[in-house]
Design a protein around this nucleic acid. Structure first.
Length: 432
RNA sequence: CGGGGCGUGGCGCAGCCUGGUAGCGCGCGUGUUUUGGGUACACGAGGCCGCCGGUUCGAGUCCGGCCGCCCCGACCA
C-alpha cells in the first residue's frame, strides 16, 4: 500500500477519551476509530493486524483437529429459552425484536446454537468426538466499556465447542485445546500462563483462563518461573499420554490471579515471579449442561441415548490486539511482533521527487509485491520517521538521497532500534 | 448500576463564574523556505459552541430536561 492513499490517520496528540497505552496508540496509529461506546471500526492497518491474529488462531485450532465453521451473529431467543439462559443471562445480552415482533438477540456466545446444529445432524457415537469453532463478532452490553478494544461491547472472538461421549473424552478435548492455546500465544510472541479459574456464568467445573504477561496488565499475577522457559514449538504432543504429561506440566506449577492467590502455597514456590496480566482466553468443560436441557442425544453402542459431554473455548481476538500493544510498545509507539504486524516493512522515501530515491523505492516496493507499506507522502523526513515508529512495522527501509546515489539503504529494526546501511539485496535478505 | 467529570472547526484546549460580533496550538489547502528525526514565514479554508425548551433586547455563557462520552467502583473474552 502507498501511504499517500491509505486511510491511516495518525495523530500527533492523544484523543481525550483514551486512557491506557494500547487504546492511545491504536487511535494515534490510525488502527481503529470509535463508533460508539465500546464499538470500533477497524481501519485498514488495524484490520490487517486483526486478520493476522485470526490466521494464527485458526492454524492452531486446525492443528488440533478443530473444524472451522461460521455461525450467525443474530440468534432466535427460542434457543436460549430451551437452555434456560434467556432469563438467566441478564442485561449484558442485547435483546432485539424483528418486524414481526419475534424476540431475537445479538449473540454473546454460541453454546445454544452449536448444540442445536449438532443435535439436528449427529446421531451416532461413531461420529464423536468432534470439535468445532468459528471466529465471529459477539456483543455483550457491558455496563461500562473501557480500555478501547480490550473491553469493548462488540468484539471478535474465536469460540470452539467440543462434543465427547463421556467425561474422559471431554478431558482429552480440553487438553488439546489447552495445547492449541499455548502454541497460539507463543506464536503471537506472548508469554501466556494458564490459571485455574472460576467457571463463571457459563457454568462447569474444569476451567482455566489464559493470562498474558504485560507490565500494564489489569490484574496482579503470581507464578512459578518455569512458565517463562516453556517452548511449545519443539516436541510432538499427540498421544493421550503425551497430552496428559503436557497438561500436568501446565497445571502443576503455581500460577494464580488475585482471586485465587493463596499465600501459604505461594510461600513454598522456589522461583517466584510476580507481574501484571491480561486475560485473553478461557476454556471450560461443562458436561451436559446444554445437551441435556436441549435434548441433544446420540445413540450409544448399545443403542441407548447418550448426552454428549461438552466444553467451550474462547480467545478474545480483538482484545489480543490491545493486549499485544500493552506488551509491545515504547515511548515512540507500537512495536509489532513480526507475525502480526500490519506490514513486515515500511519503505521511507525521504525525498519524493528525487529520481534516484523514487526509482529505488519503486523497485523495492515492487519486490515486496504488496507486502510492504510505501511511505511516498510529501512529508518531512522527521514526520515519516515518527509515523513509522508509531505504527510499529518491524522493519524500516530508509531511502534517502545520500544512500540512493550509492545504491544503499538504511535498514532499521523497530524493536531495539539497530540500524545499518546495506545494499538492497542484503536488506531484503535480512528482512526475509 | 452507585460515585465523579466532560461535550466549543479534524485533534488538544481557552472562553462560561461576571450574558454583548467565537479564540489559541496542532492538523488541513496554496506559495515561498527547509531537506536524514514532527522546519520557518505568509495567505487561506473550516464552527446551528451535543440536542430541545426556558429566562433575556440579546445565550457558548444563566435555568430545566434529554442525549453522548470518559474516569473510579461492582461485573466480564
Amino acid at each position: 500500500m502507498r501511504l499517500s492513499h491509505t486511510l491511516a490517520p495518525t495523530l500527533k496528540e492523544t484523543p481525550a477519551e483514551a486512557q491506557i497505552v494500547s487504546h492511545r496508540l491504536m487511535l494515534r496509529a490510525g488502527l481503529v476509530r470509535q463508533t460508539a461506546a465500546g464499538i470500533y471500526a477497524w481501519l485498514p492497518l488495524g484490520w490487517r493486524v486483526l486478520q493476522n491474529i485470526a490466521r494464527i488462531v485458526r492454524e492452531e485450532q486446525d492443528a488440533v483437529g478443530a473444524q472451522e465453521m461460521l455461525m450467525p451473529t443474530i440468534q432466535p431467543a427460542e434457543l436460549w429459552r430451551q437452555s434456560g439462559r434467556y432469563d438467566a443471562y441478564g442485561p449484558e445480552m442485547l435483546r432485539i425484536s424483528d418486524r414481526h415482533d419475534r424476540d431475537i438477540l445479538y449473540g454473546p456466545t454460541n453454546e445454544e446454537m452449536i448444540t442445536d446444529i449438532f443435535r439436528q445432524s449427529v446421531k451416532s457415537y461413531r461420529e464423536l468426538p468432534q470439535m468445532l469453532y468459528h471466529i465471529q463478532w459477539k456483543f455483550r452490553d457491558e455496563v461500562r466499556p473501557r480500555f478501547g478494544v480490550m473491553r469493548g461491547r462488540e468484539f471478535l472472538m474465536k469460540d470452539a465447542y467440543s462434543f465427547d461421549l463421556d467425561y474422559a473424552g471431554a478431558v482429552v478435548s480440553y487438553r488439546k485445546m489447552m495445547l492449541a492455546y499455548m502454541r497460539t500465544f507463543q506464536r503471537l510472541g506472548l508469554k501466556a500462563i494458564p490459571m485455574e479459574a472460576e467457571s463463571g456464568p457459563i457454568g462447569g467445573n474444569l476451567s482455566h483462563e489464559f493470562i498474558i504477561l504485560a507490565p500494564t496488565g489489569e490484574s496482579q499475577v503470581w507464578y512459578d518461573a518455569v512458565f517463562e522457559e516453556m517452548d511449545f514449538a519443539a516436541g510432538r504432543i499427540e498421544t493421550d499420554a503425551e497430552l496428559e504429561q503436557f497438561f500436568a506440566q501446565m497445571t502443576t506449577p503455581y500460577a494464580a490471579t488475585d482471586e485465587k492467590h493463596d499465600a501459604a502455597t505461594w510461600a513454598q514456590v522456589t522461583n517466584q515471579r510476580e507481574g501484571r496480566g491480561i486475560e485473553v482466553g478461557h476454556i471450560f468443560y461443562f458436561g451436559t449442561k446444554y445437551s441435556t436441557p436441549m435434548g441433544l442425544t446420540i445413540a450409544g453402542r448399545d443403542g441407548a441415548p447418550i448426552a454428549p459431554h461438552m466444553g467451550s473455548y474462547g480467545i478474545g481476538v480483538s482484545r489480543l490486539v490491545g493486549a499485544l500493544i500493552e506488551a509491545n510498545h515504547d515511548d515512540a509507539g507500537i512495536i509489532w511482533p513480526d507475525p502480526v504486524a500490519p506490514f513486515r516493512a515500511v519503505i521511507l522515501n525521504l525525498k519524493p521527487g528525487d529520481p534516484a530515491c523514487d526509482r529505488m523505492c519503486e523497485d523495492l516496493y515492487a519486490r515486496f509485491r504488496g507486502g510492504a507499506l510505501y511511505d511516498d507522502r510529501e512529508e518531512r523526513a522527521g514526520v515519516k520517521f515518527a509515523d513509522a515508529d508509531l505504527m510499529g512495522h518491524p522493519w524500516q527501509i530508509v531511502v534517502g538521497p545520500r544512500g540512493a546515489a550509492g545504491g544503499r539503504v538504511e535498514l532499521k529494526r523497530r524493536a531495539g532500534g539497530e540500524r545499518q546501511e546495506l545494499d538492497i539485496d542484503a536488506a531484503l535478505a535480512k528482512i526475509g
